[in-house]
Design a protein around this nucleic acid. Structure first.
Length: 422
DNA sequence: TCTGGGGTCCTAGGACCC
DNA sequence: TCTGGGGTCCTAGGACCC
């Protein structure tokens, strides 16, 4: 059996944890640049505030209803996420961290008769240790466990936040109550298509045959989905040692950028961040691409376009100075005088383990001292205020930096921002 | 005025090889 | 006059997820 443990309204829950006066009150958290609403407590959902809705469109009702609003505070959420996952690792045999607020658990070692009791224990203990409320779905496959979790979340009082789909009857009941668009792996395009075939519930889809799925539902993906709905596991637990295949750092600018110098500053700053992520997983990249987004808002429509450049590195690397050099060159090649830039990004790909670098005959071996320097910079930036050490190319003006006007303190990762108890 | 950021997996189709 | 078929590798782009 597999379980999914999902934090309820995760970002909003993190904010509420350090501001107990907000308990039982509506809270929302905004995406970067204070653009969209990305997390809502139940009280905010009850007010009809939509997920991913643009903040400026909801501003009025948010103010009228006295909803607490926060800019996203990734230091806080990242650290709370680590605590939740750490708790799960102490309580469960095998944990696969799926996203910042979700983990799959392999419960094959647990006696079937005790599964429900065990799931309740997991929930209560995690909540007690971390202060973050969670919901749990347990079923034979990942897709079914996600479905169970969704139902548990919808009816927290009726289910205690835990739902188990063990018997065929339990599974049938849950599938009948789930519309196709609520199935994990069915997006808006797929749901529309299914509706055309008059397939409306998860139960309808489960009863389609595999050949039909192969033809009409994205080939192997569709077949797998139907099997999973029948309780036949096809999506296995992922090995936690497998590292990322691609690392990206991309941002909208706080305000538009016109000058090459500023555009380069932004791109090289993103490059430094991406390189840091790369070193954290002990990787080295063989490919790097840079893209910039130009706004051609003519007052009638919002219709941005993207220009991108790509470099195959002569030798795989994780060195910030090397990567910054290429990033700056690519940025210059993309730049056109007079354009209005609203976003940029850096993507590192073809990632290999750093101890596996294949040196090119003509390129000089990487200097061991530079690697030591990287390590030192990473350590200092991690323990001190972020980015206290940086490269000159990153600049100091940061006119393009994103808006974060309502960010809470980084309560758990910065000494200067700890909670003060009187 | 203002609409996020970071990932994965799969498929189709082209280039190339024998 | 007649002009194959099977395989691999790579890339771009779509769909989906949180």
């Amino acid at each position: 059996m597999k379980a999914i443990v999902d934090c309820n309204s995760f970002y909003a829950a993190c904010e509420r944890l350090f501001k107990p006066s907000l308990h039982g009150k509506p809270v929302v958290v905004l995406s970067n640049n204070d653009g969209c609403i990305v997390s809502r407590t139940d009280e905010a959902k009850a007010l009809g505030i939509q997920m991913a809705g643009p903040y400026f469109q909801h501003k009025k009702e948010i103010e009228q209803n006295n909803v607490a609003v926060f800019s996203s505070n990734y230091h806080l959420y990242g650290d709370m996420s680590r605590r939740v996952m750490e708790a799960l690792r102490m309580l469960a045999p095998q944990v696969e961290v799926y996203s910042v607020d979700e983990s799959f658990l392999d419960l094959d070692g647990i006696e079937p008769a005790k599964l429900y009791e065990y799931a309740l224990f997991l929930k209560h203990t995690t909540e007690q240790w971390t202060g973050i409320p969670v919901s749990i779905g347990v079923a034979p496959s990942k897709v079914l466990s996600k479905l169970a979790n969704k139902l548990a979340k919808k009816d927290k009082t009726g289910t205690n936040g835990v739902m188990l789909l063990q018997t065929p009857e339990q599974q049938m009941d849950a599938l009948l109550r789930t519309p196709v668009e609520d199935i994990w792996g069915v997006g808006s395009a797929g749901a529309g298509k299914l509706r055309l075939f008059n397939i409306n519930t998860a139960w309808d889809l489960r009863n389609m045959n595999e050949e039909w799925a192969r033809k009409n539902l994205g080939g192997v993906v569709g077949v797998r989905l139907i099997k999973e709905l029948r309780g036949i596991p096809c999506i296995e637990m992922k090995d936690p040692r497998i590292t990322k295949k691609m690392i990206a750092t991309t941002r909208m600018f706080g305000k538009p950028v016109y000058a090459l110098r500023e555009l380069k500053e932004a791109v090289t700053t993103y490059t430094a961040r991406a390189a840091e992520k790369l070193r954290r997983q002990n990787g080295a990249a063989m490919e790097m691409s840079v893209f910039v987004v130009v706004s051609n808002n003519n007052g009638l429509q919002y219709n941005p376009y993207v220009r991108s450049a790509y470099t195959r590195l002569p030798v795989a690397t994780a060195l910030t100075n090397v990567l910054i050099h290429h990033a700056a060159e690519m940025t210059a090649s993309l730049y056109r005088e007079g354009c209005k830039y609203i976003k940029a990004g850096v993507v590192l790909s073809r990632i290999i383990p750093a101890n596996n670098i294949q040196f090119n005959l003509f390129s000089p071996p990487e200097n061991i001292n530079v690697q030591k320097l990287m390590q030192t910079i990473d350590n200092i930036n991690f323990s001190m205020q972020h980015d206290i050490l940086k490269f000159a190319a990153n600049g100091t003006s940061k006119n393009w930096k994103m808006r974060q006007e309502m960010r809470s303190n980084r309560f758990t990762t910065r000494w200067e921002e700890l909670c003060v108890v009187k």
